[in-house]
């Protein structure tokens, strides 16, 4: 294809490097899967949900309490962050004057870059004592939901913002010409047009919430028990791995890799969902 020998060499080495980058994810699945296979063989998948509790030292491996913890923390955070994030994006595009919208956007971007351990630390030293005044111990499902909300808010906002920003000006001008109020324009014209991008952002935010480890580990209290109220401590699947990997051996260690594999599959499904939702945007 090329007259130059050196180009052939370059092409093949670039292909090699790209192939290597592409196989990393295969390696991740293979090694986590390999480590998980021991527990899948000796414990079996069904006992991860049918065992009475999670006591690895006594051979009990029910992950249900942690699964419930993950689902509750994630659901709470996504349900709070979605309206807030969409409102923040509408604010930037249709309500705020430019000199407010620009710094506001920049602030949201900066928020998305703050490390999770800093969010977790701040939650632990500020939010947890506040919640403890209402009802001890303070480390709770509620604290986890609040911190995760702040953490995934930028993801929802930035996706909604770029999606709303792309809605054609013809639409909003047309709405204005029809005498619609700003709010009616936003509700009935802008949001429906921007929906695919917003949904993709919410999917990715959900994935981020499920995978988040440090912040929930630091503020949730980590008791292995299905919570009865917002003020009860919970342990999530991710926190469970972080807490027990240090000393886990044998089947216990392998069981932690099983939960890691489950997290991985959940998140791949969500990223895929986000992509499908985003494709609507490309067509629309």
């Amino acid at each position: 294809m090329s007259r130059f020998r050196v180009d052939e060499g370059l092409l093949w080495s670039l292909r090699g490097v790209a192939f290597l980058a592409g196989t990393i994810v295969v390696f991740v699945v293979a090694f986590v899967g390999w480590e998980a296979s021991a527990a899948l063989r000796s414990v079996g998948l069904s006992r991860f949900v049918t065992d009475p509790s999670w006591y690895p030292s006594e051979g009990l491996y029910s992950v249900l309490p942690m699964l419930v913890g993950t689902v509750l923390v994630t659901a709470g955070a996504v349900l709070t962050a979605t309206p807030l994030g969409i409102m923040a994006a509408i604010f930037c595009n249709h309500y705020a004057p430019a000199f407010v919208a620009r710094p506001y956007r920049r602030m949201i971007e900066l928020m998305s870059g703050i490390p999770s351990v800093v969010y977790g630390f701040w939650g632990l030293v500020t939010l947890v004592p506040l919640i403890a005044q209402v009802e001890p111990p303070g480390t709770s499902l509620l604290a986890g939901i609040m911190i995760l909300t702040v953490m995934i808010l930028p993801t929802v906002t930035l996706f909604a913002d770029s999606s709303i920003g792309r809605v054609s000006e013809e639409y909003t001008r047309g709405a204005a010409a029809l005498g619609l109020t700003r709010w009616a324009t936003v509700c009935h014209v802008v949001l429906p047009a921007a929906r695919p991008g917003i949904v993709a952002g919410v999917f990715l935010a959900t994935a981020r919430a499920i995978g988040e480890t440090m912040a929930v580990l630091m503020v949730c209290g980590n008791v292995v028990k299905t919570p009865g109220s917002l003020f009860d401590p919970v342990r999530t699947l991710t926190a469970n791995i972080a807490l027990e990997m240090a000393y886990a051996m044998g089947d216990h260690r392998s069981a932690l890799f099983v939960t890691g594999l489950v997290l991985f599959l959940l998140i791949v499904a969500l990223v895929w969902g986000a992509e499908l939702a985003g494709e609507g945007r490309a067509r629309g």
Partner: peptide, 14 residues
């Protein structure tokens, strides 16, 4: 794209 979504704790396990 899939790799970008893998949670950090799973990278830790890997």
């Amino acid at each position: 794209d899939v790799l970008a979504g893998v949670p950090s704790i799973v990278f830790g396990l890997f």
